[in-house]
Design a protein around this nucleic acid. Structure first.
Length: 737
DNA sequence: GTGGCCCCTGTTTTT
DNA sequence: CAGGGGCCAC
């Protein structure tokens, strides 16, 4: 098949896109810049295989990283072909692997009703292990250990394969070992296991591997630069026999290093599939010229990349609007006011996104939006599924589904309170462990009067409470078989009197909690269950594997608030990026590591390239972090943007020229925003406690305290009748009297 | 065993 | 600033 006789529906692709879509069978690597039609190429390729080459959809596997991307791909393919092709598999790495394991995991000892442990569950298991091994959480922080374990698993390393170089790593390794046993006992897998275990399944069982290779003769992968070693291996093994592997990615948008992603998998791919056809997509259909120029300038500073030069035919467009606000409150206010102004120009709220480096930054924005009555939707942050009440209900469901799930057992054994305290729980844990069983299954044996197990050493009262709890779960389990999940949730809420527990006072917070529980019932009723799936299994799996962006409703007319990470793959006519300060972007944790710095730069690049028409870049003069306010420096990345694509922007109605307008910094190539009165330069006065000073507005006062900060002084001055005011020596026009 | 208070600490990004 | 752990009083 060549481009010349391509069917008409390929005509809306540019030559490079066509080249990729109609590439001969065999491995294909598409390196696609932002906005160059990456997803389009992927969906057209799938459609092309089916429609032109007559490949049965059954033989196609398309893999993405988020459910949202998977759904989009499925829909777009359906649009092209006029209906969803039967048997086509589209899903995330995690959901696909979970499915494989439910079906075939038994040969490597994975029960088909396994639960998926999330982050918090993992920490819970690690803490339990630390207690068991009598290790101090202070010395061996669970968070670190979980990262350690995750990193190992992403590299496909089992505990015995991890080589510890220092004592501490050896401890981590042992915790990993015991952690893994505990997961197995609980019939649980964590996120990383889903991938790693499938790879193990494929490696250890040729027959299973061959079955999947025969089924999936075409493998398509989106966002290939985000794969970690385990995911790469998954793709490689599956494609080994037929080599029909079509991957699309962009090294410049690799922003998940911290969770094991390695964009060098692109290079590895070229080595493992040397015959791979390489296609570069450089034409950008999204952004205007100025925005693209900034993006190109930023990313070209990175050393490890395949040079690409994006171009657009959209014209130069509006210059980038750069602004400094005094602090995060003013920054948010500026964004809000500007959004209102833009809606007057015909933009809709839904056209606009505000992006930031850390979730904590969303707060100031939310507050401003509430004040200005701007509708918004927040992606991520305090996620619905992380809410306590939601997790409680899910723990009940998980325990019903899988009685060995000790983490869920521990979570709810005393929720609502039923007189089973920490001591009792401790006894139960030790007792079950010695018996080599999970807690609930062990209790079941006791309840059944089995003589294969000694009852736990508990007092009568505690024992009764525990057995009653076990019976409750057992009854729910019996009643629930095959029951639709919403009904099951309702039944269990009733049975354990969860509503009374949540609504024990009638605060707003309680009501909101209860609403969340009801929302969960609602979610359960919207989940699609396949014909051969158990409803509860399906529900729990969908819920475990949702990502933040999955919940983004594009149809809704609200401003989108999201992290730069969550923004990847999206586009908006108007984008605000806030908090462009050293320490935030680039993040302070990355500044002394060159590789990390390159990743921060890519993150900025991803943000910039989300914008179609208007891009606003904001930073503050001072920012409150961890409760205290510090002076901030503009992000060093800002100085990498060519000056001629930036407009120093100050909208008419909002022309404040606060202290932030003045700055002398080598980071700072841009003209200050107008209005500065204070002459720059000249010696900055030094102050000391007890000194008498004069302020132009407050008059004469006494210095109460002086704190040295970032080369400046924070001066507290008491004024008679006006209280104590805080100033920065460099800015406030304080003079010694 | 429960609930409340206080201190302390650790603060990135997430399937 | 906020979540968690430790400690205390019921």
């Amino acid at each position: 098949m060549t481009v010349e006789n391509a069917p008409s529906w390929l005509e809306d692709l540019n030559p490079q896109q066509q080249e990729a879509v109609t590439a001969e069978l065999g491995p294909v690597l598409v390196l696609a810049g932002p906005g160059s039609g990456k997803t389009r190429v992927l969906t057209y390729r799938a459609a092309y295989l089916i429609y032109e080459l007559g490949v049965p959809p059954f033989h196609i596997l398309a893999v993405t990283f988020t459910n949202k991307a998977a759904n989009e791909m499925r829909e777009r393919i359906a649009e092209l072909l006029g209906g969803t092709p039967r048997g086509l598999t589209v899903g995330t790495f995690h959901s696909i692997c979970a499915r494989f394991l439910r079906r075939d995991g038994d040969v490597i000892g994975i029960p088909s009703n396994f639960v998926i442990y999330d982050d918090n569950d993992q920490i819970g298991v690690i803490k339990a292990v630390l207690k068991e091994l009598d290790l101090d959480e202070k010395l061996y922080p669970p968070r670190r250990i979980s990262n350690f374990i995750s990193r190992a698993k992403n590299e496909l390393l089992t505990p015995d394969m991890v080589r510890a170089r220092i004592h501490r790593e050896e401890i981590f390794r042992r915790v990993y070992e015991r952690y893994q046993e505990k997961l197995r006992e609980a019939h649980a897998l964590d996120f990383d296991d889903l991938i790693m275990e499938v790879v193990r399944l494929f490696r250890e069982h040729d027959d299973v591997l061959e079955k999947y290779q025969r089924r999936y003769q075409h493998v398509l992968v989106d966002e290939f630069q985000d794969t970690n070693t385990a995911q790469y291996e998954f793709v490689k093994i599956l494609g080994k026999s037929h080599r029909q592997v079509f991957v699309v990615g962009d090294e410049d948008q690799s922003i998940y290093r911290f969770r094991g992603a390695d964009f060098r998998n692109v290079l590895r791919f070229r080595k493992d599939f040397p015959e791979a056809k390489l296609v570069l997509l450089e034409q950008n259909y999204r952004s205007t010229g100025h925005i693209l120029a900034a993006a190109n300038a930023i990313i070209s500073k990175n050393s490890s990349r395949t040079p690409k030069q994006l171009f657009t035919q959209r014209g130069e467009g509006t210059k980038i609007r750069l602004r400094e606000a005094y602090d995060e409150t003013e920054e948010a206010d500026f964004v809000a006011n500007e959004i209102i102004r833009l809606t007057g120009e015909g933009y809709r709220f839904g056209d606009i996104a505000v992006m930031y480096r850390t979730n904590a930054q969303s707060r100031a924005l939310e507050e401003a939006f509430l004040r200005h009555e701007i509708p918004y939707q927040l992606v991520g942050a305090t996620r619905f599924y992380a809410r306590r009440e939601v997790k409680d209900v899910l723990a009940y469901l998980r325990l019903i589904h899988n009685p060995s799930d000790d983490i869920s057992f521990l979570r709810i054994v005393n929720v609502p309170a039923r007189g089973i305290g920490a001591k009792t729980v401790g006894v139960l844990q030790r007792w079950a462990r010695d018996a080599g069983l999970a807690i609930l299954p062990a209790l079941r044996l006791v309840a059944a009067g089995s003589d294969s197990i000694e009852p736990p050493p508990l007092r009568r009262r505690a024992m009764d409470a525990v057995l009653s709890f076990a019976r409750t779960i057992e009854e729910l389990r019996e009643e629930s078989d095959g029951m639709p999940v919403p009904e099951l949730i309702t039944a269990l809420l009733e049975k354990v009197k969860y509503k009374d527990y949540i609504l024990k006072d009638d605060s707003e917070e309680s009501k909101e909690r209860w609403n969340n529980v009801l929302e969960l019932v609602n979610v359960a009723s919207t989940i699609l269950v396949g014909p051969d799936e158990d409803p509860l299994t399906a529900f729990l799996e969908r819920v475990s594997l949702v990502s933040d962006v999955d919940n983004l409703r594009e149809s809704e007319n609200g401003v989108t608030l999201l992290t730069l990470h969550a923004a990847k793959g999206l586009e908006f006519p108007v984008v605000f990026i806030v908090g462009l300060e050293d320490g935030l972007l680039p993040h302070s944790r990355s500044i002394d590591e060159p590789d990390e710095m390159e990743e921060e730069r890519r993150l900025f690049y991803v943000g910039i390239t989300r914008a179609k028409d208007l891009l606003y870049l904001l930073h503050t003069f001072r920012r409150t972090r961890y409760g205290s306010s510090d002076l901030s420096m503009p992000s060093r990345f800002l100085s990498e943007i060519p000056k001629d694509v930036v407009e120093n922007y100050s909208p008419g109605s909002y022309g404040r020229s606060g202290p932030g307008a003045r700055r002398s910094s080598r980071n700072w190539p841009f003209e200050p925003l107008g209005g500065s009165k204070r002459s720059s330069g000249g010696p900055i006065p030094r102050f000391y406690a007890g000194q008498r000073v004069r302020h132009p507005k407050f008059g004469v006062g006494t210095v109460v305290s002086v704190v040295e900060k970032n080369g400046d002084q924070e001066v507290r001055v008491a004024f008679a009748g006006k209280g104590i005011k805080l100033f920065l020596a460099k800015l406030a026009n304080l003079e010694a009297v």
